[in-house]
């Protein structure tokens, strides 16, 4: 659903999305790198668990939230992607159990 314009001279980098390596370009945000790699479903809504993807790409809608390097609920449209970054989708609800 998304592609890159050809005349690019930026450096390629590799990051991981749900443990799969993905090629991006220096200067991409995590969200723009994922969209160009064909990922449009980023998360599930809290109640109905319907699929959601980036909507505004300017830090307002919070639809692009992902876990980045172990930190949950990060707005990936605001974060520049870096080499070896580990990004993954999150479970919408965390269950609290007695055995922690």
């Amino acid at each position: 659903m998304f592609n890159r314009l050809p005349n690019i001279i930026r450096k390629p980098i590799i990051f991981y999305f749900d443990n799969e390596p993905i090629e991006a370009l220096e200067g991409d945000t995590i969200a723009s790198a994922l969209l160009s790699a064909g990922v449009v479903e980023f998360r599930k809504s809290a109640l109905s668990h319907n699929k959601r993807g980036p909507y505004c790409l300017m830090g307002t809608c919070f639809e692009c939230l992902l876990e980045v390097d172990g930190v949950t609920q990060q707005q990936t449209c605001l974060i520049e992607v870096k080499n070896n970054m580990r990004v993954c989708r999150e479970e919408t609800k965390r269950l609290i159990t007695n055995d922690g």
Partner: peptide, 23 residues
């Protein structure tokens, strides 16, 4: 709320930050 629905500004943002465009 469906994935694939964005704002016009979001598409501009993709062009500006990453030269990424919709196909």
């Amino acid at each position: 709320t469906l994935p694939g629905v964005m704002t016009a500004g979001a598409l501009q943002s993709l062009l500006k930050t990453s030269a990424v465009y919709p196909t």
